[in-house]
């Protein structure tokens, strides 16, 4: 077996080294790097997807557009960019449950959900959810009845799947903003449901 470089310097030092080498050659600068980090820490994340979900729950015309052409409908919010070339929205219901994975890497709808969380990138999730989805979902806190249909979506090309969760009971009076606050990242990947407000 070819040896892995046995004494590689630690990743934080290698990152610093790579950035320094590229900066010295005028190929990157700290502002651009900081800007990209800031975008994914503060501006792009599950709050984007939650706005789409709340709108779809409260506006039937919007929901129809979202289901017909996800990319265009999320674009109405300005949500677009890398890993969002073609958005396909799949609806969860009491009888049909959908869950998304990328077994080959960790493809994820960045413009709607930001960068993927650890569990989505975990070999345990990538390997198992295609083979024993009900067991994995139960492990993650979502027990599904045997009569619920389960569909797993493996994101192996450039289509990015986004789950429209079921609207929870007891939310008829809530505003769009209050509804958005209920929607979790996990529900928009399909490993959880949205809970009723407590």
């Amino acid at each position: 077996m070819t040896a892995v470089p046995p004494t590689r310097p630690p990743a934080p030092i290698r990152a610093e080294a790579l950035e320094a080498l590229l900066t010295e050659r005028g190929l990157v600068n700290a502002d651009a790097i900081d800007g990209l980090i800031n975008r994914f820490v503060n501006d792009v994340g599950p709050m984007n997807g939650a706005k789409v979900v709340a709108k779809a729950w409260t506006d039937e015309d919007y929901k129809a557009r979202l289901m017909a052409d996800g990319t265009a409908a999320v674009g109405e919010f300005g949500f677009a960019g890398p890993q969002g070339e073609h958005i396909v929205v799949v609806e969860n219901s009491a009888s049909s449950h959908n869950v998304v994975v990328c077994t080959l890497c960790s493809c994820y709808p960045w413009p709607l959900l930001g960068l993927p969380p650890d569990w989505y990138k975990d070999p345990a999730y990538r390997s198992r959810v295609v083979r024993e989805p009900r067991t994995v979902l139960a492990e993650m806190g979502l027990e599904l009845d045997a009569d619920v249909d389960v569909t797993v979506w493996d994101s192996s090309a450039e289509n990015r799947y986004f789950i429209l969760p079921e609207r929870p009971a007891g939310t008829e009076e809530l505003s769009e903003d209050d509804l958005a606050a209920l929607v979790t990242r996990e529900a928009m990947v399909g490993v959880a449901k949205v809970s009723s407000p407590t």
Partner: peptide, 27 residues
């Protein structure tokens, strides 16, 4: 591979270097 669990308090980048690595990878 073991079991799957969700960390509700996870940060986008657990350590600063991960953000630098992400940006350099993206570029």
């Amino acid at each position: 591979w073991g079991t799957v669990s969700i960390d509700p308090d996870e940060k986008v980048f657990a350590e600063d270097w991960e953000g630098r690595a992400f940006a350099l990878g993206a570029m």
